[in-house]
Design a protein around this nucleic acid. Structure first.
Length: 218
DNA sequence: GGCCAGGACACCA
DNA sequence: TGGTGTCATGGC
């Protein structure tokens, strides 16, 4: 019950402070996929450089990505780090999409939620967070995204002990909220925005607008 | 110059 | 199943 109230209260607190965000910084669903893979363990500002370099070179389609020689793709996304494995995984995703779904992301994402999620998880380089990001932000499907920010904020609020698995935290949100993609989108966006401002590893808790909800201040 | 950033995977016990 | 090493760049 405490957690139930915590999950609902946290959203109200964040939404009340930041207002609507309508978020994922991308111009198209395919760009969401690129960003979701490129941002793995990487600061978003570095991802922005990589995507800008890609946009300056090719049109952002799976077909164009496949036509790019691997070495050139590696060079373009180099600012995002882990560039060798990310280049390979981007092309693997693009190849799968073209060969299995005619290059249509909408087709891939059009199935039951857990079936599509399981299909995404078979792809090399697509783990739980990346799959959920693609489902939610590229597909508009209600799959809650659990990332480092989510773990950190909930941990700091006393809603997690630290040993919970990805699946357990995802269930925590999805069992307590209506299956609403717009709500999940907004909630995760708010968590990211809040953590970027106040909840980094060196937190700015003394100026955090949610301090009244944080055990550090109770 | 060290720490950190919106993970995932291979490998091992 | 769970823990550990690896992958790599850029900003603060």
């Amino acid at each position: 019950m405490v957690v139930q109230q915590g999950i609902e209260r946290l959203f109200r607190s964040l939404a009340g402070y930041y207002g609507p965000l309508h978020w994922w910084p991308a111009d198209s669903p395919w760009e969401v996929v690129l960003g979701a893979i490129l941002t793995q363990n990487t600061a978003w500002r570095n991802v922005e450089q990589a995507i800008a370099a890609l946009k300056a070179t090719i049109s952002l389609t799976p077909e164009a990505l496949l036509q790019l020689p691997l070495g050139q793709l590696e060079a373009l996304i180099r600012p995002a780090g882990f560039f060798r494995q990310k280049a390979e995984r981007l092309q693997l995703f693009a190849r799968y999409l073209v060969e299995r779904h005619g290059g249509s992301l909408a087709t891939l994402l059009d199935g039951t939620l857990e079936a599509v999620r399981a299909e995404l998880l078979t792809l090399k380089g697509v783990g739980p967070e990346t799959a959920d990001s693609i489902l939610l932000y590229a597909g508009g499907r209600p799959s809650f995204v659990i990332d480092a920010y989510t773990r950190r904020l909930l941990g700091r609020l006393g809603l997690l002990t630290g040993g919970e698995s990805y699946a357990e935290i995802r269930h925590l949100f999805m069992s307590r909220l209506p299956a609403d993609a717009d709500l999940f989108n907004e909630y995760h966006a708010l968590i990211v925005e809040h953590c970027k401002q106040f909840c980094r590893k060196r937190p700015l808790c003394d100026t955090c607008p949610l301090r009244v909800d944080c055990p550090r201040y109770l």
